[in-house]
Design a protein around this nucleic acid. Structure first.
Lengths: 151, 151
DNA sequence: GACCAACGTTGGTAGAACCAACCTAGATGC
DNA sequence: GCATCTAGGTTGGTTCTACCAACGTTGGTC
């Protein structure tokens, strides 16, 4: 076995966008998991949505983030128990829960963002700033082309 | 609620590479799942490695693909039962299994590749050919920078 | 008032990425 | 030779994410 051989993945895969994206996502998840206690990636997403758009119903959070109703529910419950959000029935529409970020939630969000940015930086090691921006804009283009890909 | 508002994800997330990559990966998985009977994504990866590099041990397959030994084992067993690969102990090193792709495996690989390319095409709808190449090369750069990120 | 759609909730499924422990077989040290 | 270590395969389990199904409640429509 040629040791100098870099043990490359097969060509078919190496140039297949969905495989590449999956591997990059796994890398990001691995780096994140190395510094975050638990499934804080979902927490970060939900808190960011609440911070930017104000109080939202769980369904709206799901639509913003492309998450399933059920999964949003689980995250909201966890955040509620931790005191990071306040969740109460909407008096104007009692089907809904109004979820609001708390002061503690904002602090938590800041911590998570710092970690996320650190992970991104490590993930993109070796890419110049212009390349990073390009990559972000291309990925963003793919996502917006597929519209509200919620579930 | 402004209906014309495109229900955008929060800015913090929209420009975070690992989140974007994750969403693109999910999109790819969803599109793939819509046309493939079972967990054929892993089958595709393993078969592609065997086709390109010839017979390999399971451990080598894992290193090529960045997969866990255990997961390779499961895929190899499935492919073996289906007759897509031939798996037998290595006479030169009886710890190893030599996994070889069969004629049926090659046919299966061709089918899977056609599906994968179709998925990629749908995934990248709206991107010009030059943008697609750019995206692929940037993702590839990220991956190669992180070396043999096997587990 | 009957019917339908939206929302939250509970519970369950499938796949991917792991980790732990075991056994066998080769490699390395003395 | 013999003890030790490492690599490989196998079994079994865990976590997280993305789903799907069903239910009860509530609001909107005909």
């Amino acid at each position: 076995m040629a040791d100098i051989d870099a043990l490359l993945p097969p060509t078919r895969l190496k140039s297949l966008t969905q495989w590449q994206a999956g591997k990059v996502a796994t890398l990001g998840a691995r780096l994140t998991a190395a510094r975050i206690p638990l499934g804080g990636r979902a927490d970060f997403a939900v808190l960011a949505a609440l911070e930017e758009y104000g109080p939202l119903s769980q369904a709206d959070v799901g639509r913003r983030l492309g998450l399933d109703r059920n999964d949003v529910n689980a995250v909201a419950s966890r955040l509620d128990e931790a005191g990071h959000v306040d969740r109460r029935p909407d008096p104007d529409d009692r089907r809904r829960n109004v979820v609001t970020i708390t002061a503690g939630g904002r602090r938590h969000l800041d911590e998570l963002e710092e970690i996320a940015l650190g992970v991104q930086d490590e993930l993109l090691l070796g890419l110049q700033e212009s390349e990073r921006r390009l990559l972000r804009s291309l990925l963003n283009k793919v996502l917006t082309n597929h519209g509200p890909q919620a579930s």
